[in-house]
Design a protein around this nucleic acid. Structure first.
Lengths: 135, 135
DNA sequence: CGTCAATAGTTGACTAATCAAATATAACTT
DNA sequence: AAGTTATATTTGATTAGTCAACTATTGACG
């Protein structure tokens, strides 16, 4: 592929990302990043911000800001680690866990073609190509 | 796919987009959006901002701001349309056209696996899946 | 045991997008 | 010809990310 074709591919990637991100937030009420963050806490229990940063592959500043918002909405609780006061230990609230479960149930009954027009096989192909791309 | 799987897919899309966008700018010196914008002008000649907005599928406010920056760098020229003073007619400068061509030549000699580890077939599959996704 | 380096998180400045409101011009309607 | 509506662009506020500079705490070592 020449540069022009690469730029079209990457631009399409940008458009797809924008659209899917918006759709996801409209559908669930959570931004994709905050959804991933909370699901990680729900599935793996409490952890430090550094672990979240590595897991989500975003800047530590972004983590701080997301957590500030989630804390204000009572979706997470943050406490300094007694054994290492530099560290903040983050955990999800029951309230948030319930809301996430509600979201998943809702979605399982909804028409899935609204959020993605791809079939499962295509979605899997897409995921593996995207994964290879960032590797 | 359940919501959790969808969120992982979309999050991977976000990560891929961030990484490719950054790589593209490092490689070429142009942001992907401004590159697309200038290439459109180069390939299609002058046009109004509304046309650019539809072509790039971004907000008109974003178009205005990109053009302001490109104008300051002497990459585009903007003039009000004499026959319809609401409209701004935008065209690319010779200088910009030359720089874009230089970029393309550079890229054609470079190691393409740096910017994308996918082979051509995978790139084409990816493009068609992304296109279907935003359709 | 005191300094110096490393780690963890926060804050500020910047970018690129969105939406909504404002402005300017043109076109339509009576 | 005046008033209203539609079109084109701009500006301001907000969001989510980056990087760089700062603060606080811990650990290491001479």
């Amino acid at each position: 592929m020449n540069l022009r074709q690469i730029s079209k591919l990457f631009y399409q990637l940008k458009l797809a990302n924008q659209e899917m991100t918006t759709k996801f937030e409209k559908e669930t009420g959570f931004s994709i990043t905050r959804y991933e963050l909370m699901m990680f806490l729900k599935e793996n229990g409490q952890c430090s911000q550094t672990i979240l940063q590595n897991e989500l592959k975003i800047d530590s500043a972004a983590v701080t800001r997301h957590l500030k918002i989630l804390e204000e909405k009572n979706y997470v609780i943050r406490e300094r680690n007694k054994n290492n006061n530099r560290e903040v230990v983050v955990r999800i609230t029951d309230n948030a866990a319930k809301e996430l479960e509600h979201c998943e149930r809702e979605f399982s009954h909804s028409n899935k073609t609204i959020i993605s027009p791809l079939n499962e096989e295509e979605e899997n192909t897409l995921l593996s190509l995207l994964t290879k791309l960032v590797k």
